[in-house]
């Protein structure tokens, strides 16, 4: 092996170096800035300031509300669509899914511009319904990201499970709540992660429809414009902790499900 040139493992070296330098190191630097003050001393004042100020905590709550609403609306819209495409009368028309995924390929700022023009036509002045417009635009932006994972988990669902439940006397509502819904939980979880986090941070969507309220992402944006690296890092760390927690929870759910599936046999 040795005299025949390089080992395949070595191919990963540039990748590993790159990832350490530009994925791990930036996070370490963010940690450093979050836990130091302007003169470089270690301190927790940045965090204290965040949690003591009503304004920043309010922003955290507000962005959670907006993200939660966006996620719920996306889920309520996407689930029927994914179900009809995967199991309903459209399940043999495979190409139909692509129409729901296609918007993902168009630049989101252009899509939001389009929606904004329509909303301006309908509402006259966008400033009157800031919250409604914000959630609507987020839903418009992220809906494809909810449909995809739901569709994937629903197509994997074995039809014979549904038929068996029917044969054993369950009615349609029971079949849905006792068979279909529990088995599609991994899809729901991954859809929720794909929508919840971006809608907490994607402040450009709100900016574009003149929603002047801040969400977590806009805090980073404004600290960035003010060259305030320390407070910007604090927001990043808080977001990172939330991302980490949500990922852990979603991993537990999907793994738990797999274990359950294994134990069935």
């Amino acid at each position: 092996m040795k005299n025949k040139g390089f080992s395949r493992k070595q191919l990963a070296v540039p990748y590993v170096i790159f990832m350490i330098l530009f994925v791990v190191l930036p996070l370490l630097v963010v940690f450093y800035y979050a836990f130091t003050d302007a003169s470089g001393n270690v301190s927790f004042t940045n965090f204290l300031r965040f949690f003591q100020s009503g304004k920043t905590v309010g922003t955290l709550v507000y962005s959670m509300i907006i993200a939660l609403l966006t996620t719920i609306v996306c889920l309520l819209l996407a689930y029927p669509v994914a179900f009809i495409l995967a199991k309903g009368s459209y399940c043999k028309k495979h190409s139909f899914l692509m129409f729901f995924v296609l918007p993902m390929w168009i630049n989101f700022t252009l899509r939001i511009t389009a929606l904004k023009e329509i909303l301006t036509l309908i509402e006259g002045n966008l400033a009157y319904h800031q919250f409604f417009n914000g959630v609507l635009c987020m839903v418009y932006d992220f809906l494809p990201f909810m449909i995809m994972p739901l569709f994937n988990s629903l197509t994997k669902l074995d039809n014979s499970m549904i038929e068996a439940a029917h044969d054993l006397g369950a009615n349609k509502v029971q079949v849905f709540f006792k068979v279909v819904l529990p088995l599609s939980i991994p899809g729901i979880i991954s859809g929720v992660t794909m929508v919840f986090l971006p809608s907490m941070t994607n402040y450009v969507v709100l900016d574009m429809v003149y929603n002047s309220t801040y969400i977590m992402g806009s805090l980073i944006g404004s600290y960035f414009s003010a060259y305030d690296w320390h407070n910007g890092s604090v927001i990043s760390i808080i977001l990172l902790i939330m991302i980490f927690a949500i990922t852990m929870i979603s991993n537990r759910f999907t793994e738990g499900n797999q274990e359950k599936k294994v134990s069935l046999y």
């Binding site: 930036p26 963010v30 907490m200 402040y203 992402g217 980073i220 944006g221 890092s233 977001l239």
Partner: peptide, 8 residues
């Protein structure tokens, strides 16, 4: 989140 990636 893209914001955090960009900022870091």
């Amino acid at each position: 989140a893209d914001v955090v990636t960009g900022f870091s």
